[in-house]
Write a protein that binds this DNA or RNA. Structure first.
Length: 585
RNA sequence: GUGCCCGUAGCUCAAUCGGAUAGAGCACCAGCCUUCUAAGCUGGGGGUUACAGGUUCGAUCCCUGUCGGGCACGCCA
């Protein structure tokens, strides 16, 4: 049995041939020899632009250099012929029987085909979603979830050791607002009427949580809410106090009134929302290895430690009573506060501690999937890492543009606070998990995504995901009707596959590992989605032009070997995107 | 106002980090089911890559400017 490692990677092989040639010709160059796939069959299978890049340094024409390189190249069992074309491209034509070796490999390795050692076991963390647990996930979070999960899968398949992490913002003001909101709704259930602030959480889920508390504990948490009103100005318009400040005062008063019981309410709403979030994501096929608590950073003294470390390295100064980090020295637009005048650490401070902690946990590389609206935050967090003597280049930020939701051709409102948004759950129920996962990663992540709800809902059958799934189901159907032993196909005479369609499909299958590598390198799972459409398209075309279950057994087996290989690749590709590969549709 | 991102077919988006004749889907038009699933296939029209310069063998990609759009600019998280 042949091992996977013996598979000829044509790209690596060709680049080695060129390297040999350059050595023979005594060409000294640090140029990276890039082998790329061609777009046209007349240009062969792979091409290289090395000759053109060398032209200037060598004072020769690109075509001349290309000819020299070709002559100096060692013989190869895989290469049928090499041509100079155009301005000086070196085009490689791979022998068909060399390509056919792949079929046997794919059939032997099955769904694990495409696994590579590209990542070399490097420890890499992907942190994504990390939504405030203050309400249901909405369609914007859905994109980050689909992107992050697919990216993590791709990296894993490409040979990285991946940890999926969710950062739980359980320590901030937003959580306090949620706790207050739930308590106020709870008081209302106890016939204690206090005006509900506009900037508190309005969603129905808050009332649901209040009811749960009420049903379990009756009036136990009512206490003396009158104080809540006493602590407030009778009418906001009489003072210059902002509604935000008003809310903060209500929170402070609530904490005072409730005492120990505040922790119960706070913890209850956090647990509820986090549990809901986890369920939602699990149903979406998105799972995490680590749920990292922001509060734990405070509890373990890591925030204070991070600030102290910055201070020891003389990157902090005090001004207007607050403690500032000199982020301007690291390329930021302005310095940033890490500890406020009132002694509280800022979110930035805990974020510094968090990111330092990531690297101290031993990750070689860290990828943060952020909403694009956070782009201004990048310089300061990288600056802080640099100040703490970590290499900021080991932190990659993958910015995901928000999905803009359209309903009836109009931009739909998306405010969590007001409760007017389309939840991820709603979307999943409407269009299905598969369509949602695929749709989310069909586009490059840093492009805006126009999510037309009406289109997604009403025309869900025309969603591109079905096209790929259909190809898989068709193959399964054919194999079921054949009713033979799939293991036998490894020995099929693949030399009988000679049509242009068959050779094109073969090449498409050979590309799969390269596609995964590209997707991993560029943090772009969308190339998987595009690849799968391409492969499905080639297959559907082949299916319509060629009958598989023919009387001539050797031909039938050869075609079934090809088709079964396609099935493996479709399945593992869809798996990367978290999409099912149904056997029937 | 300052900074970052974006502008590609009627619409939604690609284009292997500077490569060869810029590609798909949707929509539109014309065909294909007595045969392994028509959620499919075949063919067709569609473009001065916002605009104007520049860099070089070669530009959708890099530089400058203009126009248009998005986002960010707190001792919020």
């Amino acid at each position: 049995m042949t091992k996977l490692s013996e598979l000829p990677s044509f790209r690596i092989h060709l680049s080695q041939l060129l390297q040999q040639a350059a050595l023979t010709l005594q060409i000294k160059s640090t140029l990276y020899i890039e082998i790329s796939r061609t777009k046209q069959a007349s240009h062969g299978d792979y091409s290289c632009n090395l000759a053109m890049q060398l032209a200037k340094a060598l004072h020769k024409s690109p075509r001349e250099i290309a000819g020299m390189l070709i002559n100096a190249m060692p013989e190869s069992a895989y290469v049928e012929r090499i041509e100079v074309a155009g301005a000086g491209f070196i085009n490689f034509f791979i022998r068909n029987d060399a390509k056919r070796i792949y079929l046997k490999h794919i059939l032997q390795s099955g769904d694990s085909y495409g696994v590579s050692s590209f990542g070399d076991g490097e420890k890499i963390q992907v942190e994504f979603v990390s939504a405030n647990p203050t309400g249901p996930l909405h369609v914007g979070h859905g994109r980050g979830a689909a992107f992050g999960a697919s990216l993590a899968n791709v990296l894993s398949k490409a040979g990285f050791s991946v940890t999926r992490e969710f950062y739980v913002n359980d320590a901030g003001r937003q959580m306090d607002i949620l706790a207050l909101s739930a308590w106020l709704r709870y008081l209302a259930l106890n016939q204690v009427s206090i005006p509900f602030p506009e900037n508190a959480y309005q969603g129905a889920y808050v009332k649901d949580m209040a009811r749960l508390i009420y049903e379990a504990h009756g009036d136990r948490y009512v206490h003396q809410p009158g104080l809540l009103l006493d602590g407030l100005p009778e009418a906001a318009h009489e003072t210059a106090i902002s509604t935000d400040e008003q809310l903060d005062r209500m929170i402070a008063t609530a904490k005072k009134i409730l005492g120990q019981d505040y922790a119960y309410i706070h913890n209850f709403v956090l647990t509820e929302q986090l549990g809901d979030c986890r369920n939602d994501l699990m149903e979406f096929g998105v799972e995490f290895d680590v749920w990292f608590s922001e509060q734990s950073l405070f509890d373990n003294g890591l925030v204070a430690r991070a600030v102290r470390l910055l201070d020891e390295k003389k990157h902090l100064y005090r001004q207007d009573g607050a403690l500032w980090f000199r982020s301007t020295e690291f390329g930021d637009e302005k310095d940033r506060v890490v500890q406020r005048e009132n002694g509280h650490y800022t979110y930035f401070a805990s974020d510094i501690a968090y990111h330092l902690n990531k690297f101290e946990r031993g990750f070689d590389r860290v990828i943060n999937v952020w909403g694009a609206d956070h782009h201004g935050y990048i310089p300061r967090i990288k600056g802080a890492l640099q100040a703490l003597e970590q290499d900021p280049d080991n932190l990659k930020i993958a910015l995901v543009q928000f999905a803009v939701l359209y309903r009836d051709g109009i931009k739909a409102p998306m405010s969590t606070r007001s409760g007017e948004f389309v939840t991820l759950r709603e979307l999943r129920n409407e269009v299905g998990n598969d369509a949602a996962r695929f749709f989310y990663v069909m586009r490059k992540s840093d492009q805006h995504l126009d999510f037309d709800l009406d289109l997604a809902k009403s025309q869900s059958n025309e969603n591109p995901v079905y096209y790929v799934q259909y190809a898989h189901a068709r193959i399964c159907s054919v194999l079921a009707q054949w009713d033979g032993d799939a293991a036998m196909l490894v020995d099929a005479d693949t030399g009988l596959l000679t049509s242009p369609a068959e050779l094109a499909l073969l090449q498409c299958l050979i590309d799969f590992p390269d596609i995964i590598e590209t997707a991993a390198q560029e943090l772009s799972p969308h190339v998987i989605a595009f690849y799968l459409r391409e492969l499905a398209s080639e297959f559907h075309s082949y299916y319509n032009s060629t009958h598989f279950l023919v009387p001539e057994v050797p031909i039938m087996e050869a075609r079934l070997a090809l088709v079964t290989s396609i099935r493996h690749v479709l399945k593992s590709g869809l798996e990367l995107l978290g999409v099912n590969a149904p056997e029937k549709m």
